[in-house]
Write a protein that binds this DNA or RNA. Sequence first.
DNA 1: TCAAAAGTGTTTCTCTTACACCCATGT
DNA 2: ACATGGGTGTAAGAGAAACACTTTTGA
Lengths: 219, 219
Amino acid sequence: MRTLTVEVMVFNVRAGALETLLVRGPGNVWGLAERPVSPGRGLAREAEAALAEQTGVRGAELEQLFTFDRDDAHVATVGYLALISAERHPVTPGQDVVEVRWFRTDDLPDLRPEQAEALQYATERLRAKASYAPVAFVLLPDLFSMGELQSVYEAILGSSLDARNFRRDVLAAGVVEAAGRTRSGGPGRPAQLYRWRGGGFSVVPSERRVARAMGTDRE
Amino acid sequence: MRTLTVEVMVFNVRAGALETLLVRGPGNVWGLAERPVSPGRGLAREAEAALAEQTGVRGAELEQLFTFDRDDAHVATVGYLALISAERHPVTPGQDVVEVRWFRTDDLPDLRPEQAEALQYATERLRAKASYAPVAFVLLPDLFSMGELQSVYEAILGSSLDARNFRRDVLAAGVVEAAGRTRSGGPGRPAQLYRWRGGGFSVVPSERRVARAMGTDRE
DNA sequence: TCAAAAGTGTTTCTCTTACACCCATGT
DNA sequence: ACATGGGTGTAAGAGAAACACTTTTGA
């Protein structure tokens, strides 16, 4: 009696590109982490469970996206959106899962058309969300440079930002504080490091709107 | 086996106030139009059916809002939002319905707490929607004055707008055309009448954003 | 003649964007 | 030396908000 399921669309940013987490089941077909809903447990809880069971990812922030029609036996599915750092959340295939892998969002394997559509919608919502909620901090380590912060936003928004405006607006928004340290590491001048300060993390956006959104409380 | 239901939150503007349509069932308790979902019919279709059966309202534009957790027997409910003109849509109680009535949104009867919460959320979403979608035209007759258009927006947004800015921005957006007639009727100088021209109808909004939003296509 | 709604432009301020050069390190 | 990313300020244009008075009707 699988009348209702949940499914989870998970995103990450790596090397300046947006990535999606998919699972490959016994049928050798890639798809989203999903799970039938049992009464009394709460939809968000079920979505967390689906994600934990099938990919090993725990503790992600989930946001309900949309409830999609499905076929006759499987009436509907409630889609959830999550944004996590791949480094902090190693994935391990659960039972009934052959493989779990990140795919670049612009280069996905074949998916069932409903899921491809749902992912398309999720990408749009994630972009919109970046302009009103401080979405990037879950993806970054505790200390990060302005350049890293900016490139996370560029990957999510799919467009490039002006570094001077970005820096000015982020600092003016006061959502970030200088850690007082710098990091040399690679080539180029060492970067000042920042840490995020603020309570929590959580449409054609401007740079200032992105910056202001970083100060918004979760949801 | 009522695992999934739909429920419909319907709004209207009358006398400058936002109103909500509620139904009173056999238990003498007020609530939203709702209905269990049968497999294979589509959620939006079911929501339309719930509204038609219980209130007699047909042909409303419905937008999916959110899927809410419910109790154990009744796992979840998918909430839909509709905005209709009370004048154009007379209500008639359906079978199993004792009474159907409009209530001012700021003066609702006792409702089950989940439904009161859902309505609260729907009101916020309606306000947000007014700033990006041309929401008011479903509420107005074919010919209407600037003042009427403005007061519909004021009721939805819950705040007052500057008449000069509103007029300028609405005309500049080109979503409305002068009908060439005026209407005397009440006290005050007769108003120029306008009709809406544009394809279809369908967050802290400014007056210009409201005006621009009137030109947006459905959804 | 009074109350009530309609109509009409301008100004100020803020927000947004575009834009070029020098600095500090690793190789 | 050179390649690479870091760091700094200003100016011009678009968008947003505030604002007061005259006009036309019904009562």
